[in-house]
Every structure is written in C-alpha cells, then in structure tokens.
Design a protein around this nucleic acid. Structure first.
Lengths: 158, 158
DNA sequence: TCAGGATACATGCATTTGCATCTATCTCCG
DNA sequence: CGGAGATAGATGCAAATGCATGTATCCTGA
C-alpha cells in the first residue's frame, strides 16, 4: 500500500519532544476553554458527544463509534449518554442491523444546544489561537495533526 | 479563501478546524498510550506529575505550579499528590518562603519510577509517531504547538 | 498597622469515572 | 445446525474528580 518513505525514522528524542509539546499545548488551550462560562451548562465531554453527533447527522452513531472520539472508558460513555438522554439532548434506539447495538441521535434540543454552545466555543478558540498563529501556520498545524491522527488510527488499532 | 491576503487574523473557521484536528490527534495518541501496560502501575496523570517534577529537579515545585501542567482541578491535584506521597513517590514539605504553600519533590523511588515508566512511554510514542511524520514535520509540529502554548499562556491568564 | 481582600492548599460531599463482570447477540467453523 | 469465542452495551462498586467551602497565610492601601 504505502511505498516506504526515503527518510529514516525520527529519533525517539524528536518524537517525545513533539508529543510533549502537542500535549502541553492541548492542556493549555483546554484549560482556557473549560473556564468559559458556556461550559457551566454542559461539560466538555458532553459537548464533545453532541458535536460529534452533529457531524454525522443522518442515522446517528453507535456507542462504540462515539467511543473512538472521546477519551472515556466504554462504561463511562455509556452512562454519559444515559445522562444526555435523561436531559433530552440525545435519543437512543436499537440499531437496525445489530440487536446488540444502540444508535444514538441528536434530538432537536440537543442540536440546538450544540449550536448555541458551539458558537461561543468557536469564538473562544479564535480568540485563543488568533494571536498565536497566522493562517499558514494554522493550516500546517491542521495538516500535521490530521496526518498524525490518521496514521495512528490506521496503523495502531486498539 | 483569499490567497492574496498575506496573514493576520485567521478566520474563525480556520482556528476551529486547527483546534479540532489538534484535539482529535491528542485523543487518538492518548488512547493508545493509555493502553500500554506500563500505565497499569501508574495512571497517565500520576506519571505526568512525576515527569513534570523530574524536569524541575532542584527544590521541586509548588502545588499551584504543578497545576498549570495538569488538566485537573486544584483539589483533585491536591489529593493526587497526597496519594503519590502515600506511595512514597513524592515528598511534601512546607515552602520556605510562603507558609501557605507546600513544596513537592520526587523521592528516589519516585525518580526511579518516572525513569522506568518513561523509557517504555517514550518508546511507545516513537512507535506511534515514527511512521506518521518525518523529522522535519515533527520539528514543525513541535514549533507550532510550542508557539501556540506560549501565546495562550502569556496572553490569556486564567 | 491593620482591615479587607487575595492566595495556597485542604476537606466534605455529590457526581463521574474506570475496572471487572454480566447479559445478550453475533460470527465462525466444525 | 450448534457450540465456542468475539463483540456491544449495561451495571455493581470502589476510586477519582469537581464544586463549594474552610482555614491559614500573605498582601495592599488608607
């Protein structure tokens, strides 16, 4: 499938440095985002679930698919979704093709909440990132992290 | 998008895309790291504290300084450190210049644990990152995330 | 100098999380 | 077919977390 890249594998030192830097940046940004009053109503993880569902609108997602996007144990996500359902933000129904599975979809209220919170969220991100990186740098950051994620997901199944 | 516009003021869309991509990459990598058996002995957050302490060896760190590096509420970190102390991995003593503060330092056992776990950790990171990005890309990723973190920390105090 | 407010950390308590395990369903291959 | 193992999701329970608040100490300005 992939022709081997001509260059040698990067050193352990380089990779560790990159991960450390990526991780710390994520922590720094996340700390500021969490402080946003918009997340009093709904935690980051809850919002993340609503957001992920909003990007795959038709038919919703299975619990295990959702689980790939969120950093939570399966049981924790199960109960998080249960809470969202109790709040009327998502609906759960049996998956059509697999009687073991459940399909989770956004309700109208859930979609509305996602959009409302998402607007403030996105504005806050722009505020944090805007002065830090220019357009080219942002594009490059997006490219690199996307490439990293894709390789990790493809070549290192859980 | 305007190719003619040089830079400054990236769009909300661009920043949101970059953050989403950065965040998802972090989740994907973190998921794999957490699966490493090395983290049965000590969770990621616990390791993160030991690692942070290991990078500032002389005199240790104050609890509130530590808190800047970890994505935990102050009370949670307080108790996390308490647990590490009970396991003999860190020591807590009164800060010399401020009677309200405590200074946290690695014990010998803590340093040993950090090094031992860190070795496997770093190897696992190299395995995940190595095939994904080449040396130049890693360096650029490091540069961009470092720049992002610095700007966020400097311009957006909590 | 000292009152009012800020800061550092700890603690009570309800919520959330993860691990282990359970049930139900699916898949494969004899 | 049919039984062994895999997979999806739920649940009991102990541990971890966050919020609100408490206590002690520090700082500032009148």
């Amino acid at each position: 499938m992939s022709t081997a890249t001509p260059q040698q594998a990067p050193s352990v030192r380089e990779t560790a440095e990159a991960w450390e830097s990526l991780f710390r940046a994520q922590v720094a940004v996340m700390r500021r985002l969490q402080a946003d009053p918009a997340f009093k109503e709904l935690g980051m993880k809850e919002y993340d679930v609503l957001f992920t569902l909003s990007t795959c609108p038709e038919g919703g997602l299975r619990l295990n698919e959702l689980n790939d996007h969120v950093l939570l144990a399966q049981s924790s996500l199960s109960r998080l979704v249960e809470r969202l359902e109790r709040r009327g933000l998502v609906a759960r129904r049996a998956a059509p093709d697999d009687a073991r599975g459940i399909l989770i979809t956004l309700t109208e209220a859930g979609l509305e909440a996602q959009r409302r919170i998402g607007r403030g969220h996105v504005r806050e991100i722009a505020r944090l990132f805007g002065s830090a990186l220019d357009g080219d740098e942002l594009a490059e950051l997006t490219r690199l992290t996307t490439k990293l994620r894709q390789h990790v997901v493809q070549n290192h199944a859980l």
